[in-house]
């Protein structure tokens, strides 16, 4: 089975490392971005199958990243899983409305993280949406 490319957008270096190692072990190919600005350029260059996105980021927060990815033709339908330390209250609905396919709160159980990523990969966004 070919590995699937996942873009991890996370400004915390320890989390990038932990998430990267875990996803690599689960047959993903992780690529990384450290802020909102590089998230978009890395996504354009790497064409990931799925994006794992933090909300609190320097240089354009996660909402801004989603907005910009949605405007780029070949990235508009890449599923996004939001993983944030922010409160679910308020942020969950806002993230889903902005186009996220799933919302997870840090720290998330490993099984729940994998299940959410697998699920959004299995049911890609409706291209008409």
């Amino acid at each position: 089975m070919s590995s699937r490319k996942i873009l991890i957008v996370e400004d915390d270096a320890a989390l990038r490392r932990g998430l990267g190692d875990r996803l690599r072990a689960k047959n993903f190919e992780p690529v990384f971005a450290v802020d909102g600005l590089s998230a978009v350029t890395v996504a354009q260059a790497e064409r990931p199958d799925v994006v794992l996105l933090d909300l609190g980021l320097p240089a354009g927060d996660g909402f801004r990243v989603m907005e910009r990815l949605r405007m780029i033709m070949h990235l508009a339908h890449v599923p996004i899983v939001v993983l944030t330390a922010r409160d679910a209250q308020g942020n969950r609905d806002r993230a889903l409305a902005a186009g996220a396919a799933a919302f997870l709160q840090k720290p998330v159980d490993n099984d729940a993280l994998l299940a959410a990523i697998e699920q959004v990969l299995a049911s890609p966004l409706d291209p008409g949406a």
Binding site: R17, G18, D21, R22, A85, R86, Q105, K106, P107
Partner: peptide, 27 residues
């Protein structure tokens, strides 16, 4: 309190991930 709780979640998340990664012998 809400702010510090939020700030505590990031180091907690990475500690959890890295510990479980080691326990599952990824390294």
């Amino acid at each position: 309190i809400s702010h510090i709780s939020h700030e505590l979640r990031n180091p907690l998340a990475s500690s959890y991930l890295i510990t479980t990664n080691l326990l599952e012998e990824f390294a």
